[in-house]
Design a binder for these strands. Sequence first.
DNA 1: GTATAGGTTATACAAGTGTATAAGTATAGT
DNA 2: ACTATACTTATACACTTGTATAACCTATAC
Lengths: 208, 208
Amino acid sequence: MMKYDLDKKPTRGAQRTLLAFSQTMFQLLAQKPFEKINVNEICQLCNFPRATFYNYFDDKYDLINYCWYVLAEKVHIEEADQLKPNEVVIIYFDRLYDLFENNSQLVLAILRHNQISGNLVNSFTNYLRNLAHKMFLEVFGNLHFDVPVELMVDHCSSTILLLIEWIFLKKQPTTRKQAHHYLAVLLGDPETTAVQDSTTEKPTHTGA
Amino acid sequence: MMKYDLDKKPTRGAQRTLLAFSQTMFQLLAQKPFEKINVNEICQLCNFPRATFYNYFDDKYDLINYCWYVLAEKVHIEEADQLKPNEVVIIYFDRLYDLFENNSQLVLAILRHNQISGNLVNSFTNYLRNLAHKMFLEVFGNLHFDVPVELMVDHCSSTILLLIEWIFLKKQPTTRKQAHHYLAVLLGDPETTAVQDSTTEKPTHTGA
DNA sequence: GTATAGGTTATACAAGTGTATAAGTATAGT
DNA sequence: ACTATACTTATACACTTGTATAACCTATAC
């Protein structure tokens, strides 16, 4: 749980401050690894005293969490409960695909200084996985699978993030259509896996 | 990469010291959350000066990594390359199942103070996922799937760890047999899920 | 048994962290 | 415009971190 309550609407001053800190963090992330960034530096760069930083955040991890919140605000799906599980999974994947496409410069910059599967990148993917998890939990409701619902929810959110990591963090360029195919295969969608023969177009994964 | 080189065989003194620090860490983990543990405390408890700690470890994260190494030494599979992919996945799962069963007291104690999906627990599951990943990469070699090999490797290691987390960290008691079934379903094993078309002949991919 | 790595220890230091307090300033609602 | 509330700031403190240095033990090999 973040120190600053995101539910209450912030005053103008608070908005300015929150924005300044998160932007500064993004700026620094594009310049150096997260572990090398310290609170003093952040405050110096955006001209706020340390006391102000600690008014809003417990520590830099709290700030980074807010950064992910800002970045991922757009991926929320409204009225998801009126859709079929299968649809929601694909829609959520597409939202993430958009998110990474629309922020590719930032993502690339961050990856230049922060190891994939390192602490920082993990914290972001965990954040997104969590979002997926919460949403799927609601949508999958009381449906019945061959495995417990919660396990299926875990599996779907994990697999989506796995694929996103594969494409955008491990940088394996993949079209949306191809990605959908992979997703179907990994999630064991019977329609997609078994009916390979009828589809003429084979996914062509060009090495590296 | 750890500060201390695990490949060279340690002298008797080094063994004593490494053991002392890792045991102390395990002891503290059973008492309080990882973030609340600091280097001073560890050194005080096992009667080594801080200087000695920093002879061996960069920081407490380095030590925890060594702890996972100690804990997971037994899960290595020898001559895995002579087995079929399917077998290796199940064998590795069983090793992890054993690991968690044999160390259930420790695991439970750690979970009392450290949130699931928190930093500490994640670092452990990541460690194990990495082990799985390396092993599967070798074994899966140049096999052909409906998706790129590396993606399939990612998926298998993720799914195994997902199931282990589900059973032992989220504490959903599951027999080994049941777990094997879940695993087969999640990995889309055609034999186990639904034997719709027995004529599934894999198209051979020409990709790298 | 003595040389020599390898390991241990005491001590000191610069830097960063998180908390607390009290005084000052901006903002929103009436 | 006034006032209560929310936010900002300066300052200070106790504590942890990681590094450096130099002296001191101790196991192994010759």
